[in-house]
Nucleic acid binder design. Structure first.
Length: 338
DNA sequence: AAAGTCTGCAACCGCTTTCTT
DNA sequence: CAAGAAAGCGGTTGCAGACTT
């Protein structure tokens, strides 16, 4: 037969914990340690069920809990892990010392999720969704703020980067360099976060002398793995060419160019921006480019098979290209997954 | 200043997995 | 091996405080 019931639910207290209850629970755990939640409430003199005690301890009273705002690095880690693990909050929390699954879940739902949607990123698949994009917020800041959007997302999902490269056909060298260096710095940061011992990437800025057609685009941003100082990396990035107030789409005539007046668009209503720029976006066939055989990992959802020790070579490559770093052969996914 | 709305988060609920007998 | 309880987990709710009208 099984165990006896953990607690009689009748007459047990629910709702917010009082200071006195917290004190009782902490004192008891300091003396006896956590665990055996079934008998703990009775022994500690609490009118709560064991489940409630466990939750209170793990989410609030534990001494190693880090409170306060999430740092940029923590946010970035959450986004990366979520793109890989989905809503596996406990697995994500295991990678963020001092943070609880509940806290991460709340933070995701109240902050990160909303911001991704605002930036046109589907929070479930981490893929770009133009219909979700808040054009006004993107266009209203200086330099189109495109690099900010991309900084956060390109290392999560290459499709976003590919969208950026679609916008990268002017020949403004200064902006090419700016964006390229920005991307490089961010890539190195993320790389070192994942692989602390990996040397920094240093490559020369490729020169784009004229707008790329789709064929050369595919060639240019194909998922070639490049060997950088002995590390195999996905070389799938290139600098978009964004001039001060124009972004030129490939295969577009001058009249179709996506003109964004960065100096005055802050005064535009979202609807007027949409009306002004939608024709260009609609005319351009994103689907045809996105369906070209580039690095496009299958979007993960919560039911997707997670990386494990039986992960195939192809799957490894997929995850590599997703995050732009190599997963060494010796890497034990099972350890990672806890 | 009051009422209504929004936001953040602690805690609960119910389902699944793990463990014990 | 089966039954049933404990533990774990993710989704949801309810409330307090902040913000807006």
């Amino acid at each position: 037969m099984g165990r006896s019931p953990c607690c009689d639910k009748n007459g047990l207290k629910k709702g917010p914990w009082t200071q006195e209850e917290d004190l009782k629970l902490m004192e008891y755990i300091q003396l006896h340690g956590p665990g055996n939640w079934r008998t703990l409430p009775k022994n500690a003199g609490l009118q709560r069920c064991g489940k409630s005690c466990r939750l209170r301890w793990t989410n609030y009273l534990r001494p190693d809990i880090k409170r306060g705002r999430f740092s940029f690095e923590e946010e970035e880690t959450i986004i990366q892990l979520h793109s890989m693990l989905g809503n596996k909050w406990s697995a994500i929390a295991a990678r963020l010392p001092g943070r609880t699954d509940n806290e991460i879940k709340n933070y995701w739902n109240t902050h990160i999720r909303k911001r991704l949607i605002r930036n046109g990123i589907d929070p479930v698949t981490h893929s770009p969704r133009l219909e979700l994009m808040d054009l006004s917020s993107i266009l209203s800041s200086a330099q189109l703020n495109l690099s900010n959007l991309l900084n956060l997302q390109t290392l999560v999902n290459p499709d976003v980067l590919r969208l950026a490269t679609l916008l990268a056909t002017s020949s403004n060298q200064e902006n090419q360099e700016l964006f390229y260096n920005n991307q490089m710095n961010h890539m190195n940061q993320t790389l070192h976060h994942q692989l602390p011992n990996c040397p920094s990437i240093q490559t020369n800025l490729p020169t784009i002398s004229q707008p790329l057609n789709q064929e050369s685009h595919s060639q240019y941003i194909s998922p070639n793995l490049v060997n950088v100082n002995g590390q195999i990396l996905d070389g799938n990035f290139m600098p978009p060419c964004i001039s001060d107030n124009h972004v030129t789409l490939p295969n577009q005539t001058q009249s179709d160019q996506y003109k964004a007046q960065t100096s005055d668009n802050s005064s535009l209503e979202p609807s007027s921006i949409e009306n002004k720029y939608n024709p260009t976006i609609q005319n351009f066939n994103f689907d045809s480019v996105l369906s070209t055989p580039m690095s496009s990992p299958t979007p993960l959802n919560s039911s997707s098979t997670l990386v494990n020790s039986t992960t195939t070579e192809d799957e490894r490559e997929t995850y590599c290209s997703m995050f732009k770093f190599e997963i060494p052969e010796s890497f034990e996914f099972e350890d990672f997954m806890l």
